[in-house]
Amino acid sequence: MTRSVPVRVHRDLARAITAIENGYASFGDTLATLPARENGKASFVVGVTGPPGAGKSTLVDRLIEKFRAGGETVAVIAVDPSSPFTHGAVLGDRVRMQRHSGDTGVFIRSMASRESGGGLAPTTHDATALAAHAGFDVILVETVGVGQVELEIVAVADVVAVVTVPALGDSVQTIKAGLTEIADLFVVNMADRPGASRTALDLKHMVRESGRDVAVLQTIASEGTGIDDVMVALTAARASESSNAGRAVRFEVVRNIRDAAVRRALAVLDAPRGRSVLERLRAGELTRLEAREELLVYALAEVINAD
């Protein structure tokens, strides 16, 4: 039987995500507003990342279809970029997934990236945890269109699929650091376009040389071609012991350090000594580098005092 999730849980989960997104309530308090999952199973979290327009949302739409056919409930958290100027955002990932709208086994939530620069929103991690708590079997987390260094998805997902398209560059691109290092699976989408085999081959060479066991698959997501192969790879990754555990912990720690450092540095800026640094910088008494070092010293002193 194809499982579904009560509509009331959809509403409560949606409200819980808003509460943490907007800081109305702590994660712990929010968790208490949701019924605990019944089957005791852990959710399987799949990250889908890659450059803008590569077909991430269309691939997610196809994966929803496959996981539902297997009787599992699916939550999608899809992140789109916020304007750094107005803080506004257009969240358009649902457009590709609307055919699942009438299926109560599917929950789709868009999030604006807000002030985060890692390809996710600051609270995507928490939203994913809430969806897991609400009992969704599979959670698909789609990042904003990323470049090479927005890698925060690693801290959230059990398995990361990097979606790319043909002819974004030559084989040198495949040996650069960053995005290519976090893939548990490469998907070369739009494989009917020229250069697809070349792109796949470059990636396969890179994978072989790095000694990692990462599948490189070709899909035409808009037509549903190659999706079964993606499912086979995801199922295999799900069955194996999570290779991602170590990376995820490290990323989570780094993220927490950075968040805390930024928060405290900003607090220093609002304090008298921070304002004095800014004034001396403006007056030309300090160089930018000196100002930064002085502010860091104050911020770290705050950390030490606070802990």
Binding site: A14, G88, V95
Partner: peptide, 24 residues
């Protein structure tokens, strides 16, 4: 400065309300 969810053409009232509830 608003966050705008857009879901495309040809939406039924059911689709609109589902999206509104999930997106809160």
């Amino acid at each position: 400065g608003m966050e705008v969810v857009y879901t495309g053409l040809h939406q039924t009232p059911e689709m609109i309300v589902t999206a509104a509830v999930q997106e809160d």
